[in-house]
Design a protein around this nucleic acid. Sequence first.
DNA 1: TATTTATTTAGCTATTTGGCTAATTAGCAC
DNA 2: GTGCTAATTAGCCAAATAGCTAAATAAATA
Lengths: 116, 116
Amino acid sequence: MRHSDRLSETFSALADPTRRAILARLAQGEASVGELAQPFRISAPSISRHLKALEHAKLIVRTKDAQWRRCRLRPQPLKEAADWITRYRRHWEDQLDRLAEYLDEMPKSFGAKRER
Amino acid sequence: MRHSDRLSETFSALADPTRRAILARLAQGEASVGELAQPFRISAPSISRHLKALEHAKLIVRTKDAQWRRCRLRPQPLKEAADWITRYRRHWEDQLDRLAEYLDEMPKSFGAKRER
DNA sequence: TATTTATTTAGCTATTTGGCTAATTAGCAC
DNA sequence: GTGCTAATTAGCCAAATAGCTAAATAAATA
């Protein structure tokens, strides 16, 4: 597609609930296109395009098996995306720390009781 | 925007290198719009639209400070995205295990030497 | 060979995206 | 007030997206 970099392509592929559901299904084992399409009210060509997007993003591979195409998950780009995001882990953990501190302050300001 | 669910909105916001660079900058501390725009060859209105996308995705907040808008990172959606992706952690770790096994097999098949 | 099944490609449409310039709003300083 | 700076909104354009139906391809089966 139009993405210059891998990470953009990965996040873009993940930015669709149908494609995420397909990946969730493939996490349980490989499946044919028809099996993947079955839970959705979407036409076969549309599913095919979603799979092409996932394949282009290297999130799946498709192999021929008689008249079926079996799809398999390729987790590598997921790892790269996770690596990118978790550089910010400290930030959300700090935020939770601040929330905890704030809750600890509550009783003083409002006289409410909190058990520890 | 047009996203029905939070996760799609988050991934969509992350699927752009300019927006990811802006988040990386904000990870070091808050900044005004002008400061955020400075490293890019992109017009101010385009930056403004990127910031609006990030704000809509709840990845940043903008507060008024005289004639400036100061932007701050909001890491919560990043945590949610990381939580989603890391459900697949097992898969990429398994994959690395298989790669390691494969490399261990190499010497037998090819007679190459590998230290352990 | 003809039929059926699985999947993709072609081509259409409507919507979204991301860039731009020009114009507008908002606050500060004179 | 006027002017300066910061930022946004309005409006244009080209490309991408996601859906659809109809047609094409490929393999198995009768």
